[in-house]
Design a protein around this nucleic acid. Sequence first.
DNA 1: TGCAAATAGTTTCGTTTGAAACGATACTGG
DNA 2: CCAGTATCGTTTCAAACGAAACTATTTGCA
Lengths: 167, 167
Amino acid sequence: MTINNTDDRNDEPSELELSRFLPYRLSVVSNLVSRAFARRYETAFGLSIPEWRVMAVLGRYAPASSADICQRTAMDKAKVSRAVTRLVAAGYVTRKDNPIDQRQNVLGLTRDGRRIYRQIVPLAFATEREVLEGLNAEEVAQLDQLLTKLHARAATLAPGEGGDAPD
Amino acid sequence: MTINNTDDRNDEPSELELSRFLPYRLSVVSNLVSRAFARRYETAFGLSIPEWRVMAVLGRYAPASSADICQRTAMDKAKVSRAVTRLVAAGYVTRKDNPIDQRQNVLGLTRDGRRIYRQIVPLAFATEREVLEGLNAEEVAQLDQLLTKLHARAATLAPGEGGDAPD
DNA sequence: TGCAAATAGTTTCGTTTGAAACGATACTGG
DNA sequence: CCAGTATCGTTTCAAACGAAACTATTTGCA
């Protein structure tokens, strides 16, 4: 028979426990995973995550334009441009003008780039397996479905298009 | 009866499809969600995510030291220091020395800070609900468990302690 | 007590970031 | 054909980042 409390008709907590707040936990987990990946690719190949993503797309889909890379990596064009510049300097990527539309790039892998790509793939899967270790097949399938749903939902809530990199 | 292919005994793809790669998708989803949150808190209160996290912890656990904030927000001490400085300047947070140990801070909320905190809480839960819309109760529970397991796993793979912010 | 090591928090340093401005090229309607 | 607009990719800018250096204080131990 309490008299006080203006919002009794509300099942919502009036305090915020960060450690139980799903968006916060999602961010923390994602950043831990990204950090583990970043460290591996930095030590193994000297590649950052943006560079790694560009290599992953070119290994599969080359030739491709910078805009293609943007779509497939969820990175904005400035980030892609910078990553490509570094990869060209490293000798892994070729960049030339598209003769049919000179605004566009045509990106591809050099011989060295293809060699690196072939090493990148197994390390990626191995690291993925390490992260997912402790999850059974059903849980991995659940994670897959949840990420699909959350992606669709979050894409409508967030302004722009892509999905990478605030912080 | 093919003759070629050195790694036939391997069920692992030799190509990497980024859009099916769980760590990549986790990062994209997390960043979309973070961006949606960031935009809301920026427009509603002029708070960044680091500042928002500090407010969330202080609203619940004040008084607290900077190190306490570090633990509860998974942010490193430099980030916390900068966020607190901005919040003090904004008039939401008090920062004084701990008389028993002058190395430590004692942080708390001002009257304005408490007022903001009371507005922050419902917006946080409303946004969480928006993100989780489309998931039923069982799926939310699955997400909770999966994040717990992934967190434990990723924490052992990543070097340092915390879990925030490489991008 | 006194001195080395540890701890708390701030500041500095070089890098990376997203947004916006930009130059160059291509498309469009008149 | 030609102005106006849209698109592609790079560059610029200010802000934010992590790591490391740093100051101040406390603790451990001889």
